[in-house]
Design a protein around this nucleic acid. Structure first.
Ligand code: SF4
Ligand code: SF4
Lengths: 172, 172
DNA sequence: ATCTTTATGGACCTATAATATCCATAATAG
DNA sequence: CTATTATGGATATTATAGGTCCATAAAGAT
């Protein structure tokens, strides 16, 4: 029972499950008391994911300075800095990477060259991407869209979510 | 030569190449004269992609009312509406789908329930997602971020890019 | 010192989405 | 009727997401 192109199971352009795991793990750490280490066992059980897999994600978070880890008995993870200083973007970036969301698929394509034909006679086409003053508008719009999202994610911290949750209390 | 987890080739959260193809194809159609049909051969050659593959994408664009198609000799594609009325979002949505970018990975997880523990004693947990007034803040931030991007993409039309390209002329 | 607990990182595996090709069929102009 | 062009089904290929297993290292407890 495979799904074919016309019935395309379009799932693209989604955050990975790993991002969800990372966010929820961080939030749990933020709720723990200062100085207390939370083990991978506890985290994995909480999120309903295997310890092996989650440990890979936690390890990346450690390498990026979001959390601290300690081995040995009564070891585990804790936040490396205040939850006020950890934005959604920080966490997401660790898992999803740092490339731009839209990459030009073919700079050698005929159309790409046509896009710069206006005054491409004088200089060589590849040079046009260096200077900031002469950028392709397609790419510009796509990058602009990404920036909108990034900016929003940079403005929302883990602490912010905790605070709102505490104060709001789901007013029904 | 495989890449392993620690060297994760993080490419996630990117627009697909298909989106690039779709956008560039639409732009080419917008530049063509009114009433003229552009064949898949021309488009595929222009973008440097196979005719078979591009035709799938064009077919989806047709189903969504972005372009019109005509079979037979001197057939091909043309825009179904003015380029002023086609936003980046319209095109992207066809290829990338319509789901939200962040999907909750596990509503049965212990943490999800903890998040709603505040007043979850009275009613059942699954009901909390129905009402708009009591939404999870993690999900809310993620959806908010998506909305920022979507809104931006909805404000930029294909015609807008063509106009800017014509007027600006890469002022060096 | 030795044992136990816990994180780390390498190698491997599997499922699925993204990308691509081939071909039979339908529709249209001339 | 014929040449041309889009359509859609079936299939193949490749890359990535998602997940497992195990040997090793580090740190606390005995
Ligand atoms: S988006 Fe612009 S710069 Fe990128 S390939 Fe297309 S025409 Fe070239
Ligand atoms: S993001 Fe919120 S609603 Fe979604 S699974 Fe996590 S706690 Fe539940």
């Amino acid at each position: 029972m495979k799904l074919y192109f016309n019935r395309w199971k379009v799932l693209l352009m989604q955050f990975s499950k790993s991002t969800g795991y990372a966010l929820h793990a961080i939030i749990h750490l933020a709720r723990a008391e200062r100085g207390h280490h939370v083990g991978i066992k506890e985290l994995a059980a909480l999120l309903g994911v295997s310890e092996s897999y989650l440990s890979k994600i936690m390890s990346k978070l450690r390498q990026d300075g979001i959390v601290r880890a300690m081995t040995g008995a009564s070891g585990g993870y804790e936040l490396a800095k205040s939850a006020k200083l950890i934005t959604f973007f920080d966490v997401i970036q660790v898992v999803e990477g740092r490339q731009t969301m839209y990459e030009c698929f073919n700079m050698d394509s005929l159309q790409h060259q046509l896009f710069f034909e206006s005054e491409a006679q004088a200089s060589d086409p590849s040079e046009h991407h260096e200077g900031q003053n002469c950028e392709c508008l397609v790419k510009k719009v796509m990058d602009g869209a990404e920036q909108q999202m990034v900016h929003y994610l940079q403005q929302h911290t883990i602490q912010g979510v905790l605070d709102s949750a505490a104060s709001k209390k789901c007013t029904k």
